[in-house]
């Protein structure tokens, strides 16, 4: 089943998402990238109803890009989060709402702060030090409560993420096999081999 995790550390945000694309009980694909880069310093992991996810993620991606082209600077993470939240909240009361859950991680280059937003398909938004979506949250949140350190360096952050993913692999019946891990910091976005 779909799982995504994210956590903040000293000057970075780490985001991990599983890579399976499933339809009913069948795995259709095992190398799907479910983390989009929305700008030079903004990452978004998305999960939910297949179809809605890619459709909505691409809509967000293009609109955030449009803002950057029009204004010659990118939207900062809090503003991007608010705009995306509003898109979901408006969709919720439309004829066919998107059912997409998001983790939005960004690094604000103007004040050098990493920030992470937990957003669900209803348009509920929370700025948090760490977050999860999917069944993984029942295992990972307690580990993150215990081991998360907002002042941890990247290596320590990855070790905590490793704990979460290992626990989910060990205890969740329908655990996903592979994850893609990305980090955003002052230097931009990188993918990390995990």
């Amino acid at each position: 089943m779909e799982c995504s995790f994210a956590l903040t550390g000293k000057g970075y945000v780490l985001i991990a998402a599983d890579t399976t694309a499933a339809r009913s009980i069948v795995k259709m694909k095992i190398d799907e990238d479910k983390i989009k880069s929305l700008g030079p310093h903004l990452l978004m992991a998305y999960s939910g109803e297949p179809g809605d996810t890619t459709q909505f993620a691409e809509y967000i991606e293009r609109n955030i890009r449009l803002y950057q082209i029009r204004n010659l600077y990118p939207l900062r993470p809090p503003s991007a989060a608010s705009w995306i939240r509003r898109a979901l909240a408006d969709s919720l009361r439309s004829r066919k709402p998107y059912s997409v859950n998001l983790l939005l991680g960004g690094y604000d280059t103007s004040n050098h702060t990493p920030s992470l937003y937990w957003i669900d398909y209803l348009g509920t938004q929370a700025e948090v030090p760490f977050a999860c979506h999917g069944y993984g949250s029942y295992f990972a949140l307690s580990l993150l409560d215990r081991y998360h350190d907002p002042e941890a360096n990247l290596e320590e952050g990855l070790a905590v993420l490793r704990r979460c993913i290992d626990e989910v692999s060990k205890r969740l019946v329908v655990s996903p096999g592979k994850y893609r891990v990305k980090v955003v910091d002052k230097d931009g976005i990188r993918e990390i081999e995990f």
């Binding site: 209803l122 938004q125 929370a126």
Partner: peptide
């Protein structure tokens, strides 16, 4: 109440 509506 519903948090999304609180924000909206």
């Amino acid at each position: 109440g519903l948090a999304t509506d609180v924000a909206t």
